[in-house]
Design a protein around this nucleic acid. Structure first.
Lengths: 232, 232
DNA sequence: GGGTAAGCGGAAGAATTCTTCCGCTTGTAC
DNA sequence: GTACAAGCGGAAGAATTCTTCCGCTTACCC
């Protein structure tokens, strides 16, 4: 985690400079959002976050005019940790072990944080610092792919978009199994890793082009925030 | 589609017997729900379904007191088609081809129908006819597994719960890629099938027990669940 | 045809959630 | 200490959606 001492920064939007109490509240909001998103997903009511942070809703809206802005700030440090995981994987002298280790870590992060699972499959064009970490992770991952292929351990037709597919698939499993069967994702990953490895038994259907996949990641807001609980 | 001529039936709850106009409206509602769920997912507003059906909301609620009841009726024929797909697969003289063909069909059904993708990973204990089809499919699938294993084509440690994992994973991909990259699910399935095939390169993490998986499927309400008791 | 109960649709009330507004409080500079 | 702008919280208005209620209509039986 980088320095978060200076008051008015986060994504890189330099707020004029916050008053001390305001900066304190801002931090509380970010950390409350982090906790609540993690536990209950990205679609919690703004008021719940404000309550958790111990501030009024207006204070929350004053700092984060949109939910996206809040999400971007709340998950920036996890995006950094994620990009660090890629960097760590590149350190591994064994490229294949690095590759698999990274996949394990990112999927585990999804399983541990419901909000992060969604965030990983979304793109926020407006959030500079946030997207910068995504880009760093992406570049590292491309490198990781190349090394694993060179080592002869990763099948040649694996592409970077396959990571997005895995993340979406894993998000589905994590969402579907929830607390009822929280280890299930490991089995999915086990299957996927085995089919990523050489020798590749069969050719695969084409992956989506980078452009298509990027467009898919762009879909803002995951589930239409409609249905209030059709309870009972 | 089976015979739907007799008025007051659907799930098997024998309504006393509906008046002709009521039976007509009921059918319209079911078919509107089917269309709308397919296109926009299970969480559309009840009013939207009523409008699509050309009836008032009260008429909808009179026939289907809960959303679950409507979902169960709306998807019963697709659940039947799904179970039929399993039966078809069992007809195939080549067990492995039957197995793969079934997976392809069920994943394609998920990709073609947003509501059905969710429904397949849910259980509605109250909906008799609906769950009967699920059970039929399940029994057939277990048989399909056994035959494919006997033929030496399916890895020995494959279990029925792995189908649920695949369906959840595929639901995640379909949801994540949406219309932006609608063929992506084929690549996920390609990977998965290759790792299902023998020879199994490596042991896998344990699957969830049938009990755990069943509990996971029981989670009513798809989508972003909130805390049942929204504690504060 | 006529009586009757089943059926109908839209309005209305309740519950959420989003977002803004406004008067009061408080940190900070001097 | 004082002035004042920044900041604050809760209320309030708007928008959805859920679910029930009620007076009017109509299919069905005789």
């Amino acid at each position: 985690m980088a320095s978060t001492d200076t008051p008015g920064q986060g994504t890189g939007h330099e707020q004029p400079v916050l008053r001390a109490d305001a900066a304190r509240n801002r931090e509380r909001i970010v950390s409350a959002a982090c906790a609540v998103f993690s536990q209950r997903g990205l679609e919690v009511a703004m008021e719940d976050i404000a309550r958790e942070a111990g501030v009024g809703v207006a204070t929350l809206y004053r700092r984060f005019p949109t939910r996206e802005a809040l999400i971007a700030d709340a998950f920036e440090h996890k995006m950094t940790a994620h990009a660090d995981a890629v960097a760590d994987a590149l350190e591994d002298p064994d490229p294949w072990r690095g590759f698999c280790g990274y996949l394990e870590r990112v999927c585990a992060m999804q399983a541990a944080d419901r909000g992060f699972a969604s965030v990983l499959t979304l793109t926020f064009p407006a959030a500079k610092g946030f997207e910068a970490q995504r880009d760093r992770a992406y570049r590292g991952f491309v490198e990781l792919i190349q090394r694993a292929k060179n080592a002869g351990r990763l099948r040649a037709d694996f592409v970077a978009e396959d990571l997005a597919i895995l993340l979406m698939a894993n998000a589905g499993v994590v969402e579907g199994t929830g607390e009822a069967a929280p280890e299930t994702w490991k089995r999915l990953l086990g299957y996927m890793i085995q089919s990523f490895a050489t020798p590749a038994p069969q050719p695969l259907p084409d992956p989506p082009s980078p452009t298509l996949m990027h467009r898919a990641l762009l879909r803002l807001r995951p589930g239409p925030r409609k249905g209030c609980p059709p309870r009972r």
